[in-house]
Nucleic acid binder design. Structure first.
Lengths: 233, 233
DNA sequence: ACCATAGTTCGATCTGTGTCGAATCATCCC
DNA sequence: GGGATGATTCGACACAGATCGAACTATGGT
């Protein structure tokens, strides 16, 4: 047990997140991807030198991890706790002013479908979750999802190993409120596993330079046939 | 439904929290109390003018609410969502350097027992929660607490109206991880109701100028006899 | 009516830190 | 080895925003 004789430095962590360029970096990493410094520089719209300085501070502050591969250095969110804190902040954050047409398209795409650290969010995430509930594959207890017996079969047939997800040392299946829909979607290791399956099937693909994801042709068919969702509204 | 065509401004909300004086104000308000501007000025160690400016920004930003009573203006945390975001930040925050002896005592007192927005935390909060679990009054499902039948009786006998708490439009009973113990304690409307009962009985009292609370003589007896806790360790 | 207390507005100052140019280091590929 | 690409360090600069003095408004008490 750590015997730290100090209280948490709220200002330090919040100001670390609060600088606009660093916040942009964190938002990019909230997709759950590992991204190299150069990409993050582009996303945050600042020079490589500046980005480097910010990344240093983020790593020092424990918000971000590095993994050097060759001459690149890949950065990612350091832990689930960090992702949860950032999500909690997004829930109480004011909407950002839209300046450009491009930013407006991006915002629309994000609301449509995106990854929230490691699971589906946006309209897509909510629609998928509601399908699972309607079909009684999941049951929403106030603070957690229960997988029903028929649900377990369904997940297996879809290619998701529920038991493997359950054994991981993290929350298994809980509702995550998202900032755009304000309705819960499936998070936790089960949500992450389901999302992996979507990517594996090629139903969704990451879009360039944003957390938004794109439904492929196959994804649209799958959404209709497997999830009985005709359109995201 | 709000049709906001924008993504959340993470930097704005985080930098609002991240300024040291404002963070000090928020920490003071995390006790759940309503405090007037003057008190907050003292706690944050800045002039009344500066405090006023900060409070303005906090209110504008939706983090804090005001209620004017007479010539005083009482400030409090705006919502449970705000309190949760701040708690989530505290969990990933680095420990603050202890400068003064006084600050060291305060940190110790905080770790011992404090309020976390509206429920007990620190060693006291954890000890009480563990008693409730050991006696099988509460059962910890991964993400929520269940009140057992004998538990319902116990809460009633202690003066807590479980059904009233259950009917409130907020989470009922969930585990809140605290930054000092890193072990869960009882949060939600049930936690808040239990804490009120402690204050009503005079078992705990607020300390001056800090979120820490003090166990009274009666509280020490009660802790021993009702909660079977001999000492907080 | 008077003074005390609580809080705010305005303006001037000053510090902290984000920014990028230039140069440097590291790794990969041919 | 040499050139190209990815990333960092250093230093100079500029700007945002926190701070407080002084003056002001509003409420309460006697």
């Amino acid at each position: 047990m750590i015997e730290s004789s100090a209280k948490p430095d709220l200002a330090a962590i919040a100001s670390l997140i609060g600088e606009p360029s660093r916040a942009a970096i964190l938002e990019a990493l909230m997709s759950g991807e590992s991204l190299p410094a150069g990409d993050l520089s582009t996303r945050a719209c600042v020079s490589p030198q500046t980005t480097s300085s910010h990344l240093n501070k983020l790593v020092q502050g424990g918000l971000v991890k590095v993994e050097p591969i060759g001459k690149r250095r890949y950065f990612k969110i350091a832990s689930v706790a960090v992702a949860q804190a950032i999500e909690a902040l997004c829930l109480i954050a004011p909407p950002k002013k839209i300046r450009s047409l491009k930013a407006s398209f991006e915002a629309d795409a994000l609301r449509q479908s995106r990854t929230c650290y490691d699971h589906l969010a946006g309209k897509l995430g909510v629609a998928v979750t509601e399908f699972l509930i309607n079909e009684k594959y999941l049951k929403l207890n106030p603070d957690k999802f229960i997988v029903t017996p028929t649900g377990a079969e369904w997940f297996a047939s879809f290619g998701v190993d529920v038991d493997a997800a359950r054994q991981l040392r993290r929350k298994f299946a809980y509702p995550c409120l998202d900032w755009s829909e304000r309705r819960p979607h499936l998070a936790g290791s089960l949500g992450a596993a389901l999302t992996s399956a979507w990517f594996d099937k090629g139903w969704v693909a990451r879009m360039q330079d944003t957390r938004a994801i794109r439904l492929t042709k196959e994804g649209q068919c799958g959404l209709k046939e497997v999830f009985k969702v005709n359109e995201l509204k």
